[in-house]
Amino acid sequence: MAHSQDKHSALGQGVTIFIYLAILTLLEYFVAVSFNATSLLVVMAVSKAALVMYYYMHIYKLGADDGADPHSYAYKTGTNRFGLWLFLLSDGFVFAGLLATRINLLGFTRPHQLSQILGLGVTAVLLISSFFMNRGETAMKYGDRKGFMLNTAITFLLGLGFFIGVIFVEWRLAAAEGLTASFGNPADGPMGAVFYIMTGMHAFHVLTGLIFLYVVWNNARKGVYTAEKHWGVEAAAVYWHFVDLVWIFFYPALYLIGTAV
């Protein structure tokens, strides 16, 4: 299934995976509001992450045969791809550290001030953006520049929506509910601190992802990429999915796991 032959089935595969992911996300939400099942949530997050890494970020390409000529575009792309994945691994440690911080400081509690609807909403927006990103990358792979630009523009707008939803809506609502990062207010406890650092660091990555998307969109407009040579597009797509991947863990960690206090 991974190595789809024609454009039609490649796009179809993206749809299938998206449906799986959407169902899992909804399940996650309903499991969390109905029972206290942390381990189940962890399993679901890991399965979502695996789907994204395999089908959207096509991690299997790391093992691809790039031919023997080190000066060929394919070989250089393989080298770049390996470098990008190492970068993501390293960056992943930042988020792992943030998760560890959250577990240490909050344990089985979570902030009650967050809006569940908004949380599910921004999560859905980011997930859908990943879906369009996948369509965009697939389009480029088949030389469809217009299709790439359209889908990437949609991805960009959705990503922007996520960013605004978290930083300008959720942050304000939460602060209004009394969840603050505590400018010298000792009553707050670490709850607000953890919430703002996790969402803030993630949003920072969303922002860099948006810049990256704009750059490749603009270059596609100038006709820089072809069906054979579009490493920039692949890199932007993989990075964008990585941002989604992080949120797959952060969303349950902040909104779903533990009791709201």
Partner: peptide, 13 residues
């Protein structure tokens, strides 16, 4: 920002 990650007085560790 006064975020109390490591400030025991604020519940940090």
């Amino acid at each position: 920002f006064g975020m109390g990650f490591f400030d025991a007085a604020k519940g940090g560790n």
